[in-house]
Amino acid sequence: MKTVDLQKQSVRELNQALHDQVAECTEREWVVTDPKGAHNIACGLDQNLTVDIQGHAGYYCAGMNKKAHITVHGNVGQGVAENMMSGVVRIKGDASQAAGATAHGGLLVIEGNAGARCGISMKGVDIVVKGNVGHMSCFMGQAGNLVVCGDAGDALGDSLYEVHIYVKGSVKSLGADCVEKEMRPEHISELSELLNRAGVEEDPAAFKRYGSARQLYNFKVDNASAY
């Protein structure tokens, strides 16, 4: 196990050391101490590593992650795990806005609350939030799953493509083209598997499913006057 104290080494040095594990993996387990809200911690990883960040992190933590398992024992700023491709990112505290933005794959677990625009333009990632999500979450979400064990803010799933959204609590309002859908056995099974992977104990039957009404996919001549 290798420990990096961010008050003694820079984020750039940490990230370079983590990137160096791609060519030759000499250390699988990393611990980052005293992050003090620094931005861009553990970005662009591309190796099967575990990284434990002990404290609050700033913006874009674990961005562009591939393969690595990154855990933050604290809160994170905006854009955590943005554009993640694979691997697992787990936040023990809260996440600010745009968590998991544009992420293509992997699993993002937020054990606290997520701010506005969680999963904005997500493209295949699975996101499980134990708490609440803020307004405009899953805006233009294209693929993947968003699971919210708490409540969702305004305009959930606005301009949604094909993300499956599961919410246990209340939804303040649905965005354009987002509708509640029937929870069929395959969705219970999909949600059970997601909760299981995230290590979250909830009853899948207590959730409601939301998805795209698919009315905004194509140009409709009837709407021409609106442009």
Partner: peptide
């Protein structure tokens, strides 16, 4: 940003939220 709060006494155990 949280970075501006890190020098405050007892921040490690403070309630921190957005």
């Amino acid at each position: 940003e949280y970075q501006a709060l890190t020098t405050l006494p007892g921040i490690e155990n403070a309630k921190v939220w957005e």
